[in-house]
Computed example of a mutant assay.
Amino acid sequence: MRMGTRWDSGAEPPASVPALLHEQIAAVDATVTLSGVQPKPRWTLTWLEGRPVAELETGAVVRQDRDGQVVVGHVDALED
């Protein structure tokens, strides 16, 4: 079993967040910074079928799909 974690938008992702997600997490964080949302929303890392899923409280999701690709979207619109 893998444990998830939480961190603030704009902060460095914890070591448990796979490096392959970092670039897209930073891209989503940049949009939050530009929007001036306060307080900063938090990310939650979970694992679905062994693949990482990072979800921001705004509904933005950065995850690894079945093919190993990083997918960015919204929680209401993503399908695997």
Rank of each mutant, 00 (worst) to 15 (best):
Q64H: 05
A15P: 13
D67H: 15
D8G: 12
Q69Y: 13
R42P: 05
H22N: 06
D29I: 00
T46H: 00
A30S: 11
T58Y: 07
K40F: 03
L21R: 06
P18S: 06
S9C: 15
L45E: 02
T5H: 10
R51K: 15
D76Q: 14
R63Y: 03
E55K: 13
W43I: 00
L78K: 00
E55G: 08
G10T: 03
V28A: 05
V17T: 07
D67P: 08
V72H: 01
G73R: 11
H74D: 08
L21A: 01
R6Q: 15
P13K: 05
E79T: 12
P13F: 06
T31Y: 10
V71M: 04
E57I: 05
I25F: 01
L78A: 01
G68R: 14
V53I: 14
R51L: 08
D80A: 11
E79V: 10
E49M: 10
E12V: 10
K40A: 10
A15K: 15
E55F: 02
A27P: 09
V70S: 04
R2E: 04
D80S: 11
Q64F: 03
L56G: 11
L56H: 09
L20C: 13
V75R: 13
L20D: 11
G10N: 02
W47G: 03
V61K: 10
D67Q: 15
T44A: 11
L45S: 07
A60E: 04
W43N: 00
W43S: 00
E23Y: 10
T58V: 08
D65S: 04
P52R: 00
Q24L: 06
R51W: 08
D65I: 04
A19D: 09
G59V: 12
H74I: 05
A54F: 07
A54H: 03
W43T: 05
A77G: 12
D67M: 13
V17H: 08
A60Q: 07
R51T: 00
W47F: 13
D29E: 07
E79I: 09
D29F: 02
V72I: 11
R6M: 14
V72P: 02
D65A: 04
V61Y: 11
A30I: 01
G50M: 01
T33P: 02
W47T: 00
D76K: 14
D8S: 15
G4Y: 04
M1F: 12
L45A: 01
G10C: 06
G68L: 13
T44C: 08
V61C: 07
Q38N: 13
G10I: 06
V37N: 04
M1V: 12
P14H: 12
P14Y: 10
A77W: 12
D67W: 14
R66G: 08
L48G: 09
A26D: 08
D65N: 15
R51A: 01
V17A: 00
A15N: 11
S16K: 14
L20Y: 09
A30H: 03
R63D: 00
V28R: 06
H22C: 06
W47A: 00
R51Q: 09
L78F: 01
L21C: 06
S16T: 15
G73E: 06
P41S: 07
A11V: 10
G50H: 00
W7F: 15
V72W: 05
E79W: 09
